[in-house]
Simulated scan of single mutants.
Amino acid sequence: MNHRDDALMSDMVDVRNAQAASPIVIVCEHASAHIPPAFGDLGLPASALHSHVVWDPGAMAVATGMADLLDAALVASKTSRLVYDCNRPPEAPDAMPARSEIFDVPGNADLSANDKAERVARYYTPFREALAAILAARTAPIMVTVHSFTPVYHGKTREVEIGILHDNDARLADAMLGLAAHHTSRIVRRNDPYGPGDGVTHTLKEHALAHGHLNVMLEIRNDLIATEAEQAAVARTLSDWVSNARAQIEAKA
């Protein structure tokens, strides 16, 4: 990798604690609300620029807390999901969406094939390569992706508070759901508010399922992680579930 590529990587991807002792790798694809000035806020109204359509509020704080508690590496995108959603493959329509929930995204309307290819190369490829390298440096890595979701979506109130999501490998999710059932009063559900049918498991499929690594995707309702104290508390709870679930699985191996 040349110096220019190194600079691009650091501009687009936040990699922390790369030398962590734990095999656990925390991932936050929607960590940032940053829209590069060249995109002119993508034509969004000011009211949308820090809303859930642009990023996952609170998710990076929880992911950082979990990485610290678990002595885990952390890989996060440094650019808004609307510029490029790093949890989507380049061919997905919502990788660079022209509409997100109730908001049109004028800056993503009528993108040419070249426009899209440039965004893939600049935002997605460095993220994918950085995550792949962090995982490859570990023996039997365990990947945990961290997201947040809005409590009201298209006018519908969501009851679920924490979603534990998986694709066709449910080992870690099953163990965490079992722990959650006995150790929290939170409303915790499997593949809710999203699931594989919604196209949200791309990172799991690309980086974990293809290699047989333990993996899970966590969704936290963002009104529950609005303050630093709430973020720290949720990070502790989720870290305990991940750690204990890992221990259960390894004990059975």
Rank of each mutant, 00 (worst) to 15 (best):
P57H: 00
V120F: 06
F149C: 03
T139W: 00
T150M: 03
A133T: 11
E129H: 12
H154E: 15
A38D: 11
V83A: 07
Y153P: 06
S80R: 13
T125Y: 10
R88K: 14
G155T: 11
D115N: 07
S77F: 05
R128Q: 14
I142L: 09
A63K: 06
A63E: 04
L135D: 02
E101V: 12
M66W: 08
S80E: 14
A72D: 12
D167H: 14
G40E: 07
N108C: 11
K116S: 10
P97F: 09
A113K: 09
P36A: 14
P151S: 07
E91W: 00
P141R: 05
I142V: 13
A137V: 01
V120Q: 12
E159G: 14
P106Q: 07
K116F: 01
R158Y: 05
A76F: 02
A63M: 01
N87I: 07
R138P: 00
E129A: 15
D94W: 01
H50I: 00
F39R: 12
H50G: 02
D68Y: 09
P106Y: 09
I162C: 11
T64A: 13
A121K: 05
T64G: 10
V83I: 15
P97M: 06
V120M: 05
R119P: 02
I102L: 13
R122K: 14
V53G: 11
A73G: 09
E118F: 07
L82K: 02
G155D: 05
F149V: 03
A113I: 00
V62D: 11
N168A: 15
T157L: 12
H154N: 14
N108G: 07
I142A: 03
G107M: 05
L42S: 08
F127L: 11
P90E: 09
A132G: 14
T145V: 07
L42G: 03
P126H: 11
M143D: 00
C86V: 15
A133D: 15
V152I: 15
H154M: 15
S112G: 13
K78T: 13
A137W: 00
S77E: 02
A121Q: 08
V83E: 08
T157I: 12
L70Y: 06
E101G: 06
L111Y: 06
G43N: 13
P93E: 07
C86Q: 10
E129R: 15
R138N: 00
D110R: 12
N168L: 14
R119K: 05
H166L: 03
N108F: 04
A140Q: 12
F103C: 07
V62Y: 01
V54W: 13
T125W: 05
S148D: 06
T79S: 10
V75K: 07
K156Q: 10
A95I: 00
